[in-house]
Design a binder for these strands. Structure first.
Length: 597
RNA sequence: GGUCUCGUAGCUCAGUUGGAUAGAGCAAUAGCCUUCUAAGCUAUGGGUCGAAGGUUCGAAUCCUUCCGGGAUCACCA
């Protein structure tokens, strides 16, 4: 019994009765009334003037009269210009709040009729360096979007495809061989991914030296880049790897394990996980068969030199190579193969790729080619592309060491949270382990919220020198409000202020309280939109507004000292519900909320 | 050059399929803790929504052109 639907239907009836015509759905525009006006919902009558053939005010008044007479929830209305503001009876809102409390996961959809299996791929790291801030954005987005979509009743599978082979991996391996002195994570005491990453940087440094020497000797930059001994050795190593040379493979396995163990630690700290991890070393040969089949079907073309291409000129794009003249495959070929493989593995019909916006073109092409190959699900492949995270100085570059490392950042956040708590004297009477849990929750919450509240497609800048805020529109602000609510509930329990099981609909409530209930009312719609748009930011901003509103309420609506039992009970009930929604919404962002802080 | 994308307060960002007087936070200033957690609340200042046209009863939102930033256009991944 969604009140907006009831209103919509009623408006249609009104128009039919009054003007003898059926309005089309689009012309019924009902929205929340802006705060500066009296009312709960507003009908915009402009689109209906065509049917009414009367001035806006008159039309609005006529419809208002009809609605007030026929819909019992409507107690009053006013008209300003072409806007018909409808007031809903307060008892309706109070009973609505009661009904919300009876739902288990308010706003979630359970037992959806035809749940879809949706794959979401995110993270997809390279095993040659540790994770950085860009990966954090990717992981948080992927994990949160997966939760949000699942909350709307579909079956979501999280997959990670680890890029564990290729020339970049060989670079780290080679540098380790040359300058590593048999060091291991155990010996150095360094986290494996960082250790390997150091060798990747080392490679680049030495490689650059060689290049500048060659250039000094008179070669062009182009030539020098190709002819430097190090890069040639790395290429040789890749050839050996592909030929399954046992020594190379063994080194590769060792170093990959170091990195993957390191990733696991970071993933765990971040609180993200996967249903399945694919490795590119297992899948990089996939796709060739699809291409050959496509060739037979005539969906692809073969050139004189034997290379195979997809012709996308009808789609306004170029031609795209899929098999080189020597028959080897390219990145796109692989991706065709892994896409097919995954969809088959899970019998899925929809997939979301969480990948940076520099690959927009790649995914556009991928989708078209899969369509040409005859896969109907190609229509349901979505690229959730997100903007880069930049430093004030510009882009982050792993090879040059100008990155914000994920582990460092996480640690820094916890440290800041601790400092903050200490300064405020918040955690003085907590045990050491409680304290640790709480500061981790707060630090992580600050980071996650900081990243997720921003529209994914926007490029964001991050200044490592300025620590992430803990006041205002931040994770800790929301967590704090939650903790206060929990404290309220505990105190109420001690002081025998009852939490009613059912609300008295005659209770007198303030505008602020009404406003809060109305905001609770939009939570399910917010979740739905967030799922449709793959947008955690929607939810983040919703919770912020709710919390802001709640704090105002909290400030000037006493609960314990309120003598009217009806009112104190109602306020406690309302507070608890707000708390539930904070927890639920933050949960969808992958952010925990503490009971005390 | 083609395609895509972004441009809203000093800074970081909201702004639902076009709707009423464009909103928050940070930073600045001034208030509020013997009473439910001050990581909070209140107030003040701060804007030609990149620019110009157009569509519309109505545009930050849609269309066109231009300006500025970013991405991409490999027989790299």
């Amino acid at each position: 019994m969604n009140i907006e639907l009831i209103l919509k239907e009623a408006v249609i009836n009104a128009v039919e009765k009054l003007y003898k015509k059926t309005p089309d759905q689009k012309s019924i525009q009902i929205q929340q009334t802006r705060k500066d006006f009296e009312g709960d919902f507003t009908l915009v009558v402009f689109p209906l003037l065509r049917v009414s053939k009367k001035p806006p005010e008159l039309t609005a008044n006529e419809i208002g009269d009809y609605l007030k007479a026929n819909i019992k929830q409507i107690c009053e209305f006013n008209v300003i210009k072409g806007f018909l503001n409808l007031s809903i009876d307060k008892s309706f809102w109070i009973s609505y709040l009661s009904s919300v409390a009876q739902k288990d996961n308010f706003g979630f959809i359970k037992n959806k009729e035809n749940p879809k299996t949706i794959l979401i791929e995110y993270s997809s790291p390279n095993t040659n360096k540790p994770l950085h801030l860009g990966h954090i954005r990717n992981n948080l987005l992927g994990y949160s979007v997966a939760k949000i979509i699942a909350s709307q009743g579909d079956d979501v599978k999280k997959v990670n495809i680890v890029n564990d082979r290729g020339i970049h991996i060989c670079k780290s391996m080679l540098a380790w061989q040359k300058w590593g002195d048999s060091v291991t994570p155990e010996i150095s005491g360094k986290k494996g991914d960082h250790l390997v990453g150091d060798f990747y940087v080392k490679f680049d440094q030495e490689y650059k030296k060689e290049i500048s020497i060659l250039i000094a000797e008179g070669q062009t930059e182009e030539e020098a880049k190709q002819k430097a001994p190090l890069i040639q050795e790395a290429q040789e190593m890749l050839r050996k790897w592909e030929a399954q040379d046992s020594e190379t493979i063994s080194l590769w396995k060792d170093m990959n394990k170091w990195v993957l163990d390191g990733f696991d630690v970071t993933y765990k700290k971040l609180g993200v996980d996967f249903d399945k991890i694919y490795f590119e070393s297992d899948t990089y040969k996939l796709g060739k068969k699809l291409v050959e089949e496509g060739l037979e079907k005539g969906a692809l073309i073969k050139k004189e030199d034997g290379s195979v291409w997809a012709d996308l000129t009808n789609e306004g794009l170029d031609q795209k190579i899929l098999l080189r003249s020597d028959g080897t495959s390219v990145y796109m070929t692989q991706d065709l193969g892994t896409a097919h493989q995954r969809m088959t593995d899970y019998n899925a019909i929809e997939a979301i790729y969480v990948v940076g916006n520099e690959q927009i073109y790649h995914f556009q092409v991928l989708k078209i080619i899969l369509g040409k190959l005859g896969f109907e699900w190609s229509e349901n492949l979505h690229h959730l592309s997100y903007g880069m995270v930049e430093l004030p100085a510009g882009k982050m570059k792993s090879r040059e060491g100008t990155v914000v490392d994920a582990d460092d950042l996480l640690e820094g956040m916890t440290a800041t949270a601790e400092e903050m708590s200490r300064d405020l004297g918040k955690l003085d009477d907590f045990s050491e382990s409680e304290k640790n849990d709480i500061i981790k929750t707060i630090g992580l919450g600050a980071l996650k919220y900081f990243i997720l509240k921003v529209d994914p497609k926007k490029t964001m800048t991050f200044d490592p020198k300025e620590s992430i805020d803990f006041n205002g529109n931040t994770g800790p602000f929301i967590q704090y409000t939650y903790a206060r609510i929990q404290s309220l509930i505990r105190k109420a329990n001690d002081k025998n202020v009852d939490l009613p099981t059912d609300l008295n609909t005659k209770t007198k409530i303030s505008n602020k309280e009404l406003q809060l209930i109305k905001q609770i009312h939009t939570y399910p719609e917010t979740l739905k939109e967030a799922a449709e748009n793959y947008s955690p930011a929607h939810i983040a901003n919703y919770i912020y507004d709710l919390v802001k509103e709640f704090n105002q309420f909290y400030h000037d609506h006493p609960i314990m000292s309120e003598e009217d039992k009806n009112i104190s009970g109602f306020r406690l009930f309302l507070s608890k519900q707000v708390g539930e929604i904070i927890k639920s919404g933050m949960g969808l962002l992958g952010i925990n909320v503490p009971d005390r802080m």
